[in-house]
Structures are given as C-alpha cells and as structure tokens.
Amino acid sequence: MPFRRLLRRWQGALLSVVGIVATVWLGFSGQLGLYIHPRYFVFTLVMAFIAGVLVVVAFALLPATEHEHALPDDDQGRWAWLWSAGSILLIASATVGLLVLPPATLTTATVAKRDLNGSTSNLTQSEASDLVGGDYSSFTVRDWSSLLRQGAGEDFFADKTATVTGFVTPDTSDPENVFFLARFVVACCAVDAQPVGIPVYYPGWQDEYPIDSWVSIESGFDTNPSISSEEAIALVPSEITPTDQPAEPYVY
C-alpha cells in the first residue's frame, strides 16, 4: 500500500521536524528553560540545526517510498493498518503536544507528588553554611529554603528581609492561613524538578492569590503564628505583589 510505505519511510523525518521546530521556536522565544537546564541550550539548538539539515537533505535526495525489497515482511500482514493508525496517532499527538499547546511550567499538582522541601535538592550542608553572612538581598527561594531546612534558627532570621518571587502553593498542614512561595529546582530537565519553598503566613490568601499564580514578596521572617502548620518560621508580609511568571521559572 503506497500510503503505508510513505508513512514508514517518513514518520521519523516528520517526528524529527516536529521536534526540531518545537526546539528552535522555544529557543528563539526564550522558553527553552521551561523544559531543560540552560547548560543544554547551545547543544540542543546546534543538534536541532544539524538534524534540520539532514531532514532537508533527506527530503531533497530520497525517493518518496522505500525500495520494495527494503520492506519488512510484516508490512503486508492483516494488522498492518493498525501500525499505520498508531503511527498517525503518534505524529498527531506529538504535533499537538509540541506545536499546538502553549509551553507551560509544572504546577502544584507536581508539588503534591514530590514532597515540597522533602529533599535538600537545594544545597549541601557546607554550601548552606557558606550562605550565612552572604548578600541576603540576592538570595533566592532556594537559598532561603535551604537555610530554613538546615535549621538556622529564629535568632538568625530575626533581622533578615527576603525579597523573593515564586508561585503560590498551599501548606498542606494549614492551607487556610499558610502557603508556600515555591520554585522548582532543576538539575537537568523538568522531569527531575524538585519543589522548594518558603512558608508565608497570610490568612485568607486564597481569596486574593490563586494557586500557581506568581507573586513577589518583600518581608521579614517571624515565628509562624499558625497553630497547625508544621513550619516554625515563616514570612509574615504586610503586602504581596502579584507578578508575571519570570522568563526562567525554575532555579538551578
């Protein structure tokens, strides 16, 4: 069947084009960071370019279908149509996923699956110690959450002001009054993202700031007034500023 032969020959090239167009567009629109660590940007774009050249050369030089003798035996089987249907479905799904749906970050649904601050994904003990005495104004959510997790103590946080941006995700131990200002830490790509966050005491926050919306906070730390929250220290801000999702939503 000519269509099946056409598909068998070109499904790899088509999937390549879908992947290449998606990669290059993400790269040039500054959104590649939604999926991979910046250290891979150049490599990823260079390989997309090389593969793009190979795809174009393949389109230019190859006949539309494979030689008859190059076809595997199962191409003529009774269920061969199923292979074609699966192949079309795969190409269509890849096209929708990579080229139609808007690029997106991970959401609170993944925070719930990955134990916020459950790992030290942030920093090692010695790195966290090095933070003490650093330039606190430039500290990220990752830095502050590391210090909180390492148990720096109330005295340490008493005179410190954090200026941080992150997305809103509820504190499961007191969702009424406390939320986490969270970010995902990425080592390689979004698959390995680990959520880190700073607890924020702000009763009734749900009414003003939807889950997963991005906010900026400039505030001091204090003993967490919440009775049921498991977090001992929290930011207790008087003001929270809604903001847009930053160009690089993950921290590294």
Partner: peptide, 25 residues
Amino acid sequence: LADTARDFVTLSISVVIESLPFVFL
C-alpha cells in the same frame, strides 16, 4: 487542561526536548 494533565504534557515534552539532541547525535 487540569493541572495533572498539563503536568503530564510538560513532563513528556521535557523528556523529548532533553533527549532528542542526544538521539540525533
């Protein structure tokens, strides 16, 4: 899209974008 469905798409795309250049190489 529900959050879970959205994260499924994001995670799957992330694997593709991360692995594709290595497969090409």
